[in-house]
Design a protein around this nucleic acid. Structure first.
Lengths: 106, 106
DNA sequence: TTGACAGGCAACCATATGGTTGCCTATTGT
DNA sequence: ACAATAGGCAACCATATGGTTGCCTGTCAA
């Protein structure tokens, strides 16, 4: 559950699209997730493995199919443990930045 | 201000550390940001350029020095426009996931 | 004014990454 | 039974990435 794995997983637009699709409809199979993607099934598998390693999705075997579920917990962790830290002082930092730049700009 | 650039910039732990350091103390020069890092100055420059391209930092030349400022806006944008979407249904999705897995598990 | 200091720029290098093709296994439905 | 379907695994390839070294430019201070 390393935070680095989550950030790395989120860095790729294809993987974010996969998360978006699972967010729109959960419990999709690999082949379903391949549709309307001009990639090979194997490429999608690799992305899904990375997402699973980052704990962003969870899978469940169902006969010969493999169902994929979105796991929102690590994203929540990022928002709380890392982004929140920067958001906190957002307005204060912004006005401070503006003031500083104006002052230094003279 | 592409979201992809922000995610890619955040993917590297060195760059996140740089943001952390600017968060701890704003307006640092390149050389200050190089201290206590076993990297060359040029490597740090590359990281800072990537952060600046993603609009995560803003710079200001001051004589022969270049000051770096943290810009929290894009992180806020991510939190609001992307992470929020997943956080919203967090608890609902979690319980739903648990139920589904229990049901399917039989 | 000139040496030291802060930083920029470019070439280069090793490895990581995202994709492919080819083939194998397991489950399903007729 | 067996063809079709769902997916796994491994080798391979091109490019992206993160780092280095070497050298150049601009600013400051003695």
């Amino acid at each position: 559950m390393s935070m680095d794995a989550v950030f790395k997983a989120l860095a790729d637009p294809t993987r974010r699209r996969l998360l978006d699709r699972l967010h729109a409809r959960n419990a999709q199979t690999l082949n379903e997730l391949c549709e309307r993607d001009d990639m090979t099934r194997q490429a999608v598998t690799k992305h899904l493995n990375i997402l699973e390693a980052a704990n962003l999705i969870v899978t469940q075997k169902r006969g010969r199919e493999k169902l994929h579920y979105l796991n929102p917990v690590p994203i929540n962790g990022i928002a709380e443990r890392w982004i929140g830290k920067f958001e906190q002082g957002r307005l204060r930092a912004l006005s401070e930045l503006k003031k500083t730049l104006e002052r230094e700009g003279q």
